[in-house]
Write a protein that binds this DNA or RNA. Structure first.
Lengths: 330, 330
DNA sequence: GCTGAAATTGAATAATAATTCAGTTATATT
DNA sequence: AATATAACTGAATTATTATTCAATTTCAGC
């Protein structure tokens, strides 16, 4: 905003307000303008650097835990967000999303293809990614629609809002996530419209995903899978899921009928993406996260301290660990 | 305030609010406290220096004009307050009072006797003198009550509020400002209670006064003098007044019947006080101010730029001027 | 001088922040 | 442990600040 307020006036208002602690209403009286303008003068003072507000560095990440995770699990990158003690649920997601966004923004390329999955934590983070910062991506929906409704945390909604924020192009996978059988899936994949998206998966430079646990599955909540289905999957060794792809404790995709019935980026495809960011706050899904890391499904984990600790409490990969020493601290 | 908020919590709140621009309500949610507490946490952050707000120096005084006044009129000290262009009336008084107070505070000693007169401009300034700053003065009312009513700008009210602010002791002159004749005045001065105050005048280390012009006299407005009285005074050469003492263009007390009828600090007494501060915003009373300066009645003048310019437009004292050169700038 | 676009303005309003108040909870002193 | 005192807390309230909106003003280009 190119305002023509005189420096004199801006400085006078700034001195009265910030130095002398006079209210805007009183400043308005002394400067002989409306209170509204005082508010604007003060904004100008901050913009022009006449008033500077500096805040001591606050480290919002727990780098000790991050280092441990990197060392013990051999994960490329971990972002462990400090939260209010006892934070959980919405607050936890919001905090991890808020702080995480500042760092995830730097991990996502300026151009190219970004695959995006849904989830409440992913949404919280996406909502807080910076406004139009020159980025211009092709965003692709990484999994079909869970059900016919569209929730605010569904990939289709997140993708839409991200291109609105950044410009670029959003490609939606106009299919259900799960179809009745392989034949139907292949038929869907035959559609050019859908195949075009499918193709983009291989070109993705980054992906933003959540990780599902077998407990409290969103698929069950939304009536796509039954509790029995989950039990069956567990019998096949499933401990977690990304984009509807169930994997075992080593992060290998479970060989179940569901494997043929899901329309989403495959785990093999995911492994090829240079930057896969998983946002998983909370301790509940630690097992699934551990498995995903073992399977090299993700490159970056965004979580909070309870999530990090729960993860570290689990056995690391058999023989995994990026550093040969595999030392753990304290 | 010795708050026990953890630094961690204070810093987290400060980062969210000041760095990320999150509202207090949202910070409250993330930090898991009430919005009220966020407000307190942020106050603590500022107090502890975790958040620092710096404002580029703004020079609220016009030192060019001050220097000119000192040079041309040979006045010890001038405080010329910059104001909003076109400021007048209440706003002018408030601005001069606000800025002036910051400097006048430094001119008033920490202890000893302070004589105080009334007036709207004096009130504006007094109201803005710093709260209990270790000062402990005996404050004396420099002139009796103008009429039976007590206005918020009367010395009795200002003195009361100053001792409330600073501690110390307030001595009120429980007499009218003007009495019918010299005999009555002498009788009043005979009272121990009044004499005690009268005595203090000679011990005063500082005085805070206004200067009255012959026009728009507060005494006329309050029905103590008539327009005719003012005309009579003018015939005797009166151009201004301090504490009910009328003086001519050289600042010498006019020899009129009123001189015997006023109960207030005398001009001779005033001259002896090491620090007499006159607060006179606006151009209207320039003649009176010039005369007061010529008569060495005041040591410091507090005014605004229009007041300073009006003063400079007048002839300086015959042969006055502290510097032998008496040079003027520009 | 005229014209249109952009910037600026303050009144009204909406949004946000500070304070009051009536309990709680912690801390120090017996 | 019992008590007194100071500190702390959040709901409700009050106070303050930011924004919206409908003019009005300024300025660049004729």
């Amino acid at each position: 905003m190119n305002s023509r307020y005189t420096d004199q006036q801006v400085r006078f208002a700034a001195k009265l307000y910030y130095v002398d602690g006079v209210s805007q209403t009183e400043v308005a009286r002394l400067v002989q303008v409306s209170q509204a303008k005082v508010s604007r003068l003060l904004a100008a003072a901050r913009e022009r650097g006449i008033v500077r507000i500096t805040v001591d560095a606050y480290e919002p990440r727990d780098d000790e835990l991050e280092k441990e995770i990197r060392d013990v699990f051999g994960l490329g990158n971990a972002i462990v967000v400090k939260t209010a003690p006892g934070a959980s649920g919405d607050v936890l997601r919001a905090t991890v999303g808020h702080i995480g966004a500042q760092y995830v923004a730097a991990l996502i390329p300026d151009s190219g293809v970004l695959a995006i999955a849904g989830g409440r934590a992913v949404r919280e983070l996406c909502e807080r990614l910076p406004e139009r910062d020159g980025r211009r991506l092709t965003i692709v929906q990484a999994m079909g629609g869970i059900d016919s409704g569209v929730n605010s945390e569904d990939a289709i909604e997140l993708g839409r809002s991200l291109v609105q924020r950044w410009g670029g192009f959003f490609m939606t996978l106009s299919t259900p996530a799960f179809v009745p059988n392989k034949r139907t899936r292949d038929s869907f994949l035959g559609f050019k419209q859908i195949h075009a998206v499918w193709d983009r998966f291989t070109q993705a430079g980054a992906a933003l995903v959540g990780i599902g646990a077998m407990e409290a599955s969103a698929f069950v909540a939304r009536g796509v899978l039954t509790t029995q289905d989950i039990e069956d999957l567990k019998k096949h060794g499933a401990v977690g899921e990304i984009c509807g792809r169930f994997f075992d404790k080593n992060g290998s995709e479970c060989d179940t009928p569901w494997r043929e019935r899901v329309i989403s980026i495959g785990l093999a495809g995911l492994r090829q993406i240079p930057q896969v960011v998983a946002i998983v706050p909370g301790a509940e899904r630690a097992h699934a996260v551990a498995a995903a890391i073992r399977g090299r499904l993700i490159k970056t984990l965004v979580t909070d301290e309870t999530g990090a600790r729960a993860l570290l409490a689990l056995k690391p990969a058999r023989g995994a660990g990026r550093t040969s020493s595999g030392k753990t601290k304290k």
